[in-house]
Amino acid sequence: MSKKNKKEKEPSKEFVFQRKNYLFLFIGLAFIALGFILMSGGGSDDPNVFNPDIYSFRRIRLAPTLVLVGLGIQVYAILLNPHKKKK
């Protein structure tokens, strides 16, 4: 077997993810982190006192939506093929 044939059979060493994948991964992580930060707080130091702020729009609608959007971006980043050529 010649050297040329051996080199052709060796797998190329290339990363699975490229720069574009990592960019979307970090954007998704930022959305998830922001969602969890917005969900925090609203509690009360005294267990006998009810704080209705726990049911605010920010904690019930906005924060979970940001977390779900972040998870969607993560899935997109994993499935993204940066080598695909545009038409």
Rank of each mutant, 00 (worst) to 15 (best):
13 K>T: 13
56 S>D: 08
60 I>G: 10
63 A>E: 04
1 M>Q: 14
43 G>N: 07
41 G>C: 01
64 P>R: 10
75 V>N: 05
73 I>K: 09
32 I>S: 02
69 V>W: 10
49 V>F: 14
51 N>D: 04
87 K>V: 14
60 I>V: 13
59 R>A: 02
54 I>V: 13
14 E>K: 14
8 E>M: 04
35 G>N: 00
40 S>W: 03
46 D>L: 07
58 R>Y: 11
63 A>N: 01
7 K>W: 09
61 R>W: 15
20 K>E: 14
83 H>F: 08
22 Y>H: 13
1 M>H: 11
33 A>V: 11
29 L>R: 07
49 V>K: 12
6 K>H: 13
3 K>C: 15
36 F>C: 04
35 G>Q: 02
8 E>P: 04
66 L>R: 00
86 K>R: 04
76 Y>Q: 02
36 F>T: 01
78 I>S: 07
23 L>R: 09
14 E>N: 12
39 M>A: 07
80 L>I: 05
59 R>L: 05
51 N>T: 01
80 L>W: 00
67 V>L: 12
17 F>V: 03
64 P>H: 04
18 Q>S: 11
53 D>G: 10
41 G>A: 04
67 V>Y: 02
34 L>R: 03
67 V>P: 01
17 F>E: 02
83 H>V: 10
58 R>T: 13
35 G>H: 03
74 Q>W: 11
17 F>T: 01
65 T>L: 11
17 F>M: 05
62 L>C: 03
9 K>N: 10
24 F>H: 06
70 G>Y: 06
72 G>I: 09
73 I>H: 04
38 L>M: 06
73 I>M: 10
15 F>V: 08
84 K>Q: 13
12 S>D: 14
44 S>H: 05
79 L>W: 13
8 E>V: 07
23 L>E: 02
49 V>P: 00
81 N>Y: 03
33 A>S: 13
54 I>K: 04
48 N>Y: 12
40 S>K: 09
30 A>M: 15
35 G>E: 01
45 D>S: 13
45 D>P: 00
63 A>W: 00
47 P>W: 06
30 A>F: 12
75 V>S: 07
28 G>S: 08
20 K>D: 12
2 S>Q: 06
59 R>C: 02
23 L>Y: 08
82 P>I: 02
43 G>R: 11
31 F>R: 02
66 L>H: 00
16 V>L: 14
18 Q>K: 12
23 L>Q: 09
20 K>S: 12
31 F>W: 03
6 K>I: 15
41 G>N: 01
86 K>G: 08
55 Y>M: 15
66 L>K: 00
14 E>R: 13
28 G>V: 01
48 N>W: 08
46 D>A: 02
71 L>Y: 11
81 N>F: 05
